[in-house]
Simulated scan of single mutants.
Amino acid sequence: MTTRVLAAGDLFVRNRLFIDALRAAAPGDLEFAELTLPWPVEPFGRVAEVDEASGTEERLIEALRGARICVTQMAPLTRRVLEACPDLELFGISRGGPVNANLEAATEHGVAVCYAPGRNAGATAEHTLALILAAVRRIPQTHGDLVAGQWRGDYYRYEAVGFELLGSTVGLVGCGAVGRRVARMLAALGAKVLVHDPYLDGLGDLADVAELVPLDDLLARAQIVSLHARATPQTTGMIGAAQIAAMAPGSIIVNCARGALLDYEAACDAVESGHLFAAAFDVFPEEPIPAGSRLLTTPNVIVTPHLAGASKQTAANAARIIAEDVGRHLRGEPLLHCANPGALTVPRPA
């Protein structure tokens, strides 16, 4: 029996990556349709009731005609799409979380949604380390001055220089797939690593390189604080003015996780006042960053455009993880990364 699959890739996780991964991991006769979404050339946004999506409901509905399976990164799985596509039974989202899917509606329609946790852990961990080093050593500022014709010897003043990671204390707020990699990288460079994560009972194989501590203790002791938590109602705004004030004078804060975790106005205030030596961010409460934002003008604030996870390996990992769950689905095996297991018990149309 031929299974029709829609590969709704984009300009990062391309259709050929999905199709090659599916041919390697999924059994049987697969027939492919393709839809290319405009992300990242066009920013993602809200589509109907789902967030961080690319493309339109209309284009997706048309492309899904007769498809039992869809693999994508950014396509919007909305109630309208589900109602228009009764053949659909599995929707694979090649991201760390299925934010562009209406999980309640998918469950009602018996459509399982799988996702790809850890796909970009290596890339994001490396980008985090890069931002830490860039902030500590003032690399963007000194580069900008030099190409502008200024040889800034005054950066060598004791008050202006940063510190080495060797012997420094770094605090990680959250210790999932990314945080664990960052912890090992920092430990290899000679840093003392503190971890705060209320969902951990212990550090497991990180016990030899890190110490599990309460958040207040981490903020008081760390010279660098790096955020690695998911955005949930419990973590939204968890680092605000009071928490930044509790950090040691001259310290650094880094965020490559989610913009909702941090009060950016408070961070800019702290950098401007000199309480923080620097800050470095890859994620923001509003993306793209609005024109006129203090994030673009505050000295010693380093920003990159939400590309910590951007690597060729991430794109390949994303396609592979989803393809493996497609293979499990077609073989009648349990899905490894199902966001709505209740959908698997809903009777499918005959």
Rank of each mutant, 00 (worst) to 15 (best):
R221N: 01
R328S: 10
M74Q: 04
P285N: 15
L189G: 03
Y264G: 02
G167R: 10
V113N: 05
R23I: 14
T314F: 14
L227A: 04
T78P: 04
S293P: 13
S293A: 15
D325F: 08
I224C: 03
Y115A: 05
P27L: 13
A241H: 05
E126M: 08
G176F: 07
N102L: 07
N102T: 09
I132Y: 00
L131Y: 07
N300K: 15
P86C: 06
G274N: 11
N15Q: 12
V193W: 03
G240I: 08
A135T: 01
A266R: 08
V147C: 01
P341Y: 09
V111S: 06
D216C: 04
G190C: 10
N102D: 15
D208A: 07
P117Q: 08
S273N: 12
R221S: 02
A257W: 00
N100C: 08
I321D: 06
A24P: 01
A350C: 14
G144P: 00
P349S: 11
N255R: 11
K192G: 15
I69Y: 01
V326W: 13
L344A: 05
G274C: 11
L218P: 00
V182W: 07
I132V: 07
P299R: 13
Y199P: 06
Q313S: 12
D197E: 01
D197N: 00
A135K: 00
L335F: 03
H127A: 10
W151G: 14
I139D: 01
G122R: 11
